[in-house]
Design a protein around this nucleic acid. Structure first.
Length: 263
DNA sequence: ATGGTGGATGCTCCA
């Protein structure tokens, strides 16, 4: 089974890229974030025609929005709100093959890394804490569970273009890295991409739109993640970060991240 | 220290 997570930054603008996306990833399951469209206007038929007829969509007007599009059937699907808001930042499905998938879009957190001065940053920290608590409260650590998404945190020094210069920049501050680590520990999640790419090696999944030449300046961050529960660790077969997507016209500022799991 | 771009929306907010 191949599973791809991608922050599409408007799903309607990426429809033209779907054949290339499918060719590049071979995904059986897509988990998208920032779909930016209400459910009634989601291009469901396009995905269905391409074979992704099983769909769990949680969108809203303007912002956020997540979706899971799958060739594999669902046994059930769900979505929940976090931090007492009804932002569409989460969807989950359990496939008929038994694998449970959670798709997250964590709040970006604004510009100022101080929860007292910036309520968006406070929201982000609260979201990370609540998510850790939620997975920590699950009764078993034994389910075959995959958690993906734009988690908006780059945890390792090699997940950013300059560790020193980004210590004060939202996405790489010590408090965010600590809370992301607690979330990972809450279910003993394994970082499925770093399982294949050593921590010494730089790896990014996002490059700002604001660079004149994103590839030349290469000031990236790894904000998009795939985690698996311990029982799936030995079933991991491959991981891929598909950089060429950053040059698709028009591009998302994130690229697709794919993991292959024996299923 | 600042500004740089892009998306949805509707003349601004969010990332």
């Amino acid at each position: 089974m191949r599973l791809t997570t991608w922050n599409v930054n408007s799903v309607r603008l990426r429809v033209a890229h779907l054949p290339a996306l499918i060719e590049a990833t071979g995904a059986d399951v897509f988990c998208f974030q920032e779909t930016k469209v209400v459910d009634e206007a989601f291009p469901r038929e396009v995905f269905a025609r391409l074979g992704y007829e099983h769909q769990a969509i949680a969108g809203q007007k303007n912002h956020h929005g997540v979706a899971i599009l799958s060739r594999l059937p669902f046994a059930k699907h769900d979505a929940r709100g976090w931090c007492g808001k009804d932002d569409k930042r989460h969807a989950s499905v359990t496939l008929k093959n038994g694998i449970e998938i959670h798709n997250f879009y964590v709040p970006a957190g604004g510009d100022i890394p101080d929860p007292d001065a910036n309520e968006k940053f406070a929201h982000k920290l609260a979201f990370l804490r609540e998510a850790a608590d939620w997975f920590g409260a699950l009764k078993t650590r034994k389910a075959p569970l995959v958690l993906v998404g734009d988690l908006n945190v780059a945890p390792l020094e090699t997940d950013v273009w300059s560790h020193k210069q980004l210590l004060d920049v939202v996405s790489h501050t010590p408090i965010e890295v600590e809370l992301l680590g607690k979330w990972m520990a809450s279910y003993k999640f394994v970082d499925a991409v770093r399982h294949f790419v050593p921590p010494e090696e730089r790896l990014y999944s996002w490059w700002s739109y604001r660079a004149a030449d994103w590839a030349k300046s290469d000031r990236g961050r790894r904000l998009d993640h795939v985690w698996v529960s311990p029982v799936l660790k030995d079933r991991l077969r491959a991981a891929q970060v598909f950089k060429p997507a950053r040059d698709w016209k028009p591009p998302s500022d994130h690229v697709p991240v794919t993991v292959e799991i024996e299923a």
